[in-house]
C-alpha cells in the first residue's frame, strides 16, 4: 500500500494504491490514472521561459505540450538554455518539436506581437 497526494487538480485527494493497482481516496476518476502512472511512469508538466529578442519582453513563457517523464526534466532545461526566439510569437506556437523523440513539444504560453 502506497500513500500519495493527488496533484491532478488543486483539491489534493489523499490516495492509497495497492500492489494490484487498486486506488482508494480519489474524488474523481482522474485520481486513479494519476496514482497508477505515479507508481509506474511518473511525468510532470514543465513550465519555464526561453530567451526572446525583444526590448519589452526579454523572456517568453513556455510549457510542455503534455507531461514529460520526470527523469527528462533537467535535460529539457539544458536544451532550452541555448534557444533564442524572435517575435512575433503566438499563443501555443511550437518552440521546440518532439523533445528527445518523447512526443513532447515545447509551446509558447503567450502572444508577443512583432
Amino acid at each position: 500500500m502506497k500513500k500519495l497526494i493527488c496533484i491532478v487538480c488543486p483539491i489534493g485527494c489523499h490516495l492509497e494504491i495497492d500492489a494490484q493497482h487498486n486506488v482508494t481516496g480519489n474524488r474523481c476518476k482522474r485520481g486513479i490514472g494519476y496514482a497508477i502512472e505515479e507508481v509506474t511512469r511518473p511525468t510532470r508538466m514543465v513550465t519555464t521561459t526561453v530567451r526572446l529578442l525583444s526590448q519589452e519582453h526579454p523572456r517568453l513563457s513556455v510549457k510542455t505540450s503534455k507531461p514529460l517523464p520526470k527523469e527528462a526534466i533537467f535535460r529539457l532545461m539544458a536544451a532550452l538554455e541555448s534557444l533564442t526566439v524572435n517575435p512575433p510569437v503566438y499563443m501555443h506556437q511550437v518552440i521546440m518539436r518532439d523533445f528527445e523523440g518523447l512526443g513532447v513539444d515545447i509551446i509558447a504560453t503567450r502572444t508577443i506581437p512583432g
Binding site: C9, M45, T47, T48, S61, M91, T109, R110, T111
Partner: peptide, 21 residues
C-alpha cells in the same frame, strides 16, 4: 508561468499567461 490555473473557470489547466490572455 506555472500551470494550475483555470480548472474551475475553463475546465482545463492553464498557465498564468494563458489564463490572462
Amino acid at each position: 508561468i506555472h500551470n494550475g490555473f483555470g480548472l474551475h473557470v475553463f475546465k482545463e489547466e492553464l498557465t498564468g499567461p494563458e489564463y490572462a490572455e
